[in-house]
């Protein structure tokens, strides 16, 4: 097969990596309208949990993933109860300042606990290397990322569209007062939603570190990419984030292969064009 398929495959896999990193933000920012710039701090937490369990305690990679999810969820629910809930109705600038403060604290805390160096991380052998398929090298970990992203998308869409919980969340987001009037416990619901977002961030971080590495600056380095995915996809749309991540991933990889001179700006160019074309995002409702 011609190399274009290889590039396409890598692009989709890279896009899925972006998606896994940003889907949690798509939940908190997109559905709850909360500007959570500390999103990548939760991802970083998930990453450190996985690295610690693997390197210090010898856990297998897959066993660490649920723990990373739980760690992200617990951390975000604690912060939600302490801080975030007071700012749901505040303006977005205050949300920015609060969450940037949390990012700074998390960076310093990570540097204090783990030191400033890169955390070494070795995937299990069955996730390394690649499969040869009709002249293409398909990396196993990329296949795994694509599968994971697809699975998470399906679970999320089903949860948010077809379950009672999802209906309640959507009702609460659309009209808080009405939802309360109907007897929905909005406070608890938002707490759970936030935990879901934080948990997904933790899981995304755990899955991403094998590709992106992990050190304390993680909390800021990938924030821009995550914001790009969510805004191009459109607020409040999981499917939008999925499509946007795929588009950006493929564009980025194709750019690197075919026009390397432009590769450093391509992702930003694509973002600008997309946002100017559709200011509220691909599948944005607002």
């Amino acid at each position: 097969m011609p190399p274009v398929f290889g590039v396409l495959f890598d692009g989709i896999a890279y896009g899925m990596l972006l998606f896994l990193m940003s889907v949690g933000l798509s939940v908190t920012l997109g559905m709850m309208n909360f500007v959570n710039l500390a999103h990548c701090s939760f991802a970083m937490l998930g990453g450190y949990v996985t690295v610690t369990l693997m390197n210090a305690l010898g856990w297998p990679f897959f066993a660490t993933l649920p723990v990373a999810f739980i760690a992200g969820a617990v951390a975000s629910i604690v912060l939600e109860r302490l801080f975030f809930r007071r700012f749901y109705n505040s303006n977005e600038l205050n949300q920015c300042l609060l969450t940037i403060g949390i990012v700074f604290v998390s960076i310093a805390a990570a540097a204090y606990i783990y030191g400033t160096d890169q955390q070494p991380m070795q995937l299990p052998p069955y996730l390394q290397g690649s499969i040869h398929f009709r002249g293409l090298d398909l990396a196993v970990y990329r296949l795994f990322l694509i599968a994971a992203a697809a699975l998470i998308t399906i679970v999320l869409v089903v949860t948010l569209e077809w379950t009672r919980f999802g209906a309640q969340v959507r009702a609460a987001v659309n009209n808080q007062r009405m939802a309360r009037g109907l007897g929905i416990d909005v406070d608890t619901l938002f707490g759970f939603t936030f935990a879901l977002g934080g948990g997904l961030a933790g899981l995304g971080g755990a899955l991403a570190i094998a590709m992106l590495g992990l050190d304390p600056s993680f909390a800021l380095t990938y924030l821009i990419y995550v914001l790009i995915v969510v805004s191009v996809g459109g607020l409040g749309s999981i499917a939008g984030s999925f499509a946007a991540a795929m588009l950006l991933g493929v564009a980025d990889m194709a750019g690197e292969y075919y026009i390397p001179a432009l590769s450093s700006v391509l992702i930003y160019l694509v973002m600008l064009v997309m946002i100017m074309w559709r200011p509220s995002g691909l599948f944005g409702r607002r």
Binding site: V7, D10, L17, Q118, M211, G213, Y257, S263, S264
Partner: peptide
């Protein structure tokens, strides 16, 4: 790009040229 998190396309392009050796300079980190 300095911030490149994924090198597979660049490596593919290098492989296509079939050189004796590939020289890679990166700043470190991840």
């Amino acid at each position: 790009p300095v911030a490149s998190p994924d090198f597979s396309s660049f490596i593919q392009a290098a492989k296509d040229k079939n050189p004796d050796a590939i020289y890679i300079w990166i700043p470190g980190g991840a």
